[in-house]
Design a protein around this nucleic acid. Structure first.
Lengths: 336, 336
DNA sequence: AAAGTCATCCAAAACGTTTCGGATAAAATC
DNA sequence: GATTTTATCCGAAACGTTTTGGATGACTTT
């Protein structure tokens, strides 16, 4: 059907070896024949069969992206899209393609991480959105497949990761509230199945400590990153600790829940309660009052993850790469 | 390196033919040897080399997803993620994998649609987010590659499409405003490079007509689906036609722009102006007042697109498949 | 003139499967 | 007992590349 190297060889009156070498830029073919071959290939509208090539070279020019629970009612990956765009951009120059795997932990037909990658012969994988309890995590710790994780700290001789400096970011957010005069600061955290939750908690604690504010465990609620979770956590926090004047959230989505809860309770933001989020999703700037939050450069996270993965594939040493964040001050927190 | 069919053959003392046929469920191998082979394959942790298989069968079990301008500052695909999740779900049973292509129209290295697909040997493709002026559109009209488009009406013997009934949806949204007593209804439409814009305009006109309200061209502004576009369009509309009491938007994002513009102008929603959107993005229910809008079942669109594509690959006839929508009434439009 | 160098080319093997067209022996049929 | 059928197996070709290890002849060097 499709035109092959053989057709070109016949038409050009040379061997298929020569065609292959001509097209791939090897030096041992004269400019004259190279030009001829190229011209014929062009005419015949030849495209190399990547499958055949892959079979012999054992390279596929594909990397896998593995993401868990792409969408789940109520939960969604606020910045999956940007990370994805970043990855695509990072892969572009090296002409790698991306094959997308979604895994859901509850699924029966759960294939192992290695099997998933080997089946499709991806040369490496980028992993995002796995819970710490996911069985893949353990597997990845021992894998020989080049892997880059996003927001999951694992570092071996084949796997690296990129993330924001969550400790520092949470530290800054909390410090900001403290600087505004708040002393009773709640923290609506993510679930305990995410590494970032612990890091952000650490940053929160650090900020309190540095300002001689005692850490109170009751002020911290582990929600689940969702809006609904934020909604409930807010109410609990406010009912049980009405002295709280500010709340830091481990995600903007949860902050949105707090907005709703505050409205239900007749509380005004920021007059009655100051809120700070984390992520800077699109929503954050659109809602009223606009949400003060930590912006993560998610495009860059994806881009960097891709670049780093290619480096690992080339044999470089995996690292932990930190992507800069930024506190974006808007209108949801006020001076006390 | 990896264990092959040959290793199994040797260990089982049979030919590679028999191993292949045993593993693939052919009838001409005794249950006894089949079991033995299966056991050995299991022991050796054999995974078939999909590349080698692909080379001989000329099937890759992959379909491509082609999306343009995945993210662009300010523009984003509000429901790309859900469509994607739907596609993944639709592909799951048939064990097809998804390879993601992003194209940007301005790019120099623009390969043709056919080349893109052929390079990777995808068996079919789902296309989303192309502008009508994109050169791919013309190419797709003539392609022999099984293709399903989302929201782009092209129907040939190899390409079908899925979409909402945009005419009807716009008709319903506009009729709803009319029923509330509005007569001077503006329409902030998308750009002219999208088929849905014309369909929604048609629905808008139909509703006016049916209710004997004259169509006024000045009431319609073609924005670009973005928030910024909505913001500007709202101001223009309100300045030039202060008699307008309601505005229908071709996207929620543009409605968000109107929210902002209204706020800037000191207008209250819905007291001073009634707004209706289109899409029902997450934001719509979170914002205050919650936005009345048309919900598209985007997950289902993706799911249906995938299923239909598989059908086309199997040889079935391409169709136009309509996905049901729904008017979601919230708080952004009031009775006059 | 012999030996070495260089530029240019090619035959054949290899990658790991699937599949076509038998081969073999046992069982069934006449 | 000869023939046909059936169940079970296998050798070899094929898919479209890349790559190895030369081969060939012309040109240089001694």
């Amino acid at each position: 059907m499709a035109v092959t190297i053989k057709d070109i060889a016949k038409k050009a009156g040379v061997s298929i070896t020569t065609v292959s070498r001509a097209l791939n830029g090897y030096p041992d073919v004269s400019e004259e024949t190279r030009e001829k071959i190229k011209k014929i290939a062009e005419e015949l509208n030849y495209t190399p069969n990547s499958i055949a090539r892959g079979l012999v070279t054992n390279k596929t020019q594909t990397i896998g992206m593995i993401v868990s629970e792409l969408i789940k009612p109520g939960v969604y990956h606020p910045f999956f899209l940007e990370v994805l765009a970043g990855i695509k951009a990072g892969l572009k120059k090296d002409r790698y393609d991306l094959i997308l795997f979604t895994v859901d932990p509850e699924s029966q037909d759960a294939t192992s991480y290695e099997k998933l990658c080997n089946d499709r012969k991806v040369e490496g994988a980028i992993v995002e959105g796995l819970r710490l309890s996911d069985p893949y995590i353990e597997e990845i710790k021992g894998t020989q497949i080049p892997t880059v994780l996003i927001d999951i700290p694992i570092l071996t001789d084949k796997v690296g990761y990129v993330s924001s400096d969550n400790v520092q970011a949470a530290f800054e957010a909390t410090s900001y509230l403290i600087k505004l005069g708040h002393k009773n600061i709640g923290f609506i955290n993510g679930h305990k199945d995410a590494a970032v939750s612990f890091e952000r908690l650490e940053g929160y604690k650090k900020a309190l400590e540095k300002n001689d504010i005692p850490y109170r465990e009751e002020y911290v609620i582990f929600a689940d990153f969702t809006q609904e979770g934020g909604y409930n956590a807010f109410k609990t926090l406010i009912f049980e600790h009405p002295e709280i004047t500010a709340i830091f959230h481990a995600s903007d989505l949860m902050a949105m829940g707090s907005y709703r809860a505050a409205k239900d309770l007749g509380m005004r933001i920021p007059e009655d309660i100051s809120l700070v989020g984390f992520d800077d999703i699109e929503l954050a700037s659109l809602i009223t009052p606009a949400l003060t939050t930590i912006r993560q450069d998610t495009f860059k996270m994806g881009y960097t993850a891709a670049k780093h993965l290619l480096a690992i594939i080339r044999g470089e040493k995996p690292q932990h790469i930190v992507i800069p964040h930024k506190l974006v001050v808007r209108d949801s927190a006020r001076k006390l």
